[in-house]
């Protein structure tokens, strides 16, 4: 579904990614793991079109992405649930959700999607008329994911969905991710929380200072020696 082929990305003159290649197949949950500053968010922003690769290309459902402006990604069926949520703080919860469904296909299914989001996250229904800026951390994260669901995407890219959440909420969060995936959305997940991510994902790639150093099935990597030492602290 998504193919990233040998991309190099720079911030000005500083290279951030070296020859990154990976693939996400339909129906998978693919995790992109790594510590802070490894280049995970940079990778997502490049797919989203906010950054441009100097070398290599990105294909989504056979279409070349690297030439398209950022706002076209949504219409192709890519939803980006960004790091730090990036909600619209002065808009209500409901308005934030509506903002998720601007594209014609999503707009046609707006009511239905909204019901779906409220079923997954009942608390959002209670808070529907509250400004997004007044939500708690957990609620904000739910809203960010909910807004992604509103887009009826084929692929959802989630950037650090568990960041800043209390431990019991992290478990909830991963359940939600798996649920969304079961309902038919392919997921590209960027995480620092390696243990949870590896349990949930189909396959994973490990990024270290801008390069992919490891890849494989989630379960298998969970028992990888390097992973154990570097990320799981065993």
């Amino acid at each position: 579904m998504l193919k990233v082929n040998n991309i190099d990305v720079y911030y000005g003159d500083v290279q951030a990614l070296w020859d990154i290649s990976f693939e996400v197949k339909e129906g998978e949950i693919v995790a992109l793991l790594g510590s802070n500053g490894a280049g995970k968010t940079t990778t997502l922003n490049t797919i989203s079109g906010l950054l441009r690769p100097r070398k290599g290309n990105i294909e989504f459902l056979g279409q070349e992405l690297t030439k398209l402006p950022a706002h076209k990604m949504a219409s192709l069926g890519i939803a980006h649930v960004p790091e730090a949520r990036k909600l619209f703080p002065e808009m209500t919860v409901k308005e934030n959700l509506l903002m998720g469904s601007l594209m014609p296909e999503a707009k046609a299914r707006r009511e239905e999607s909204m019901e779906r989001v409220f079923t997954i996250f009942p608390i959002l229904k209670e808070r529907a008329w509250q400004a997004a800026g007044t939500l708690s951390g957990g609620e904000s994260q739910m809203l960010a994911v909910g807004r992604g669901i509103m887009a009826c995407p084929k692929l959802m890219m989630m950037d650090e969905p568990s960041l800043g959440l209390a431990p019991f909420l992290v478990d909830e969060e991963f359940k939600v991710i798996e649920r969304i995936n079961r309902e038919g959305i392919t997921i590209l997940l960027v995480e620092q929380n390696v243990a949870h991510a590896l349990k949930a994902c189909t396959r994973a790639y490990v990024l270290e200072i801008g390069r992919i150093t490891l890849q494989g099935k989630g379960e298998k990597l969970l028992h990888d020696k390097h992973i154990e030492e570097a990320y799981l602290g065993i």
Partner: peptide, 24 residues
């Protein structure tokens, strides 16, 4: 309206608005 909300969204967070498919 979607157009009006897009205006407000762009004002509040430009990058997020782009993720939503808003042509800034």
């Amino acid at each position: 309206t979607d157009f009006g909300r897009s205006i407000r969204a762009t004002a509040q967070d430009l990058d997020a608005a782009k993720y939503m498919g808003v042509d800034a």
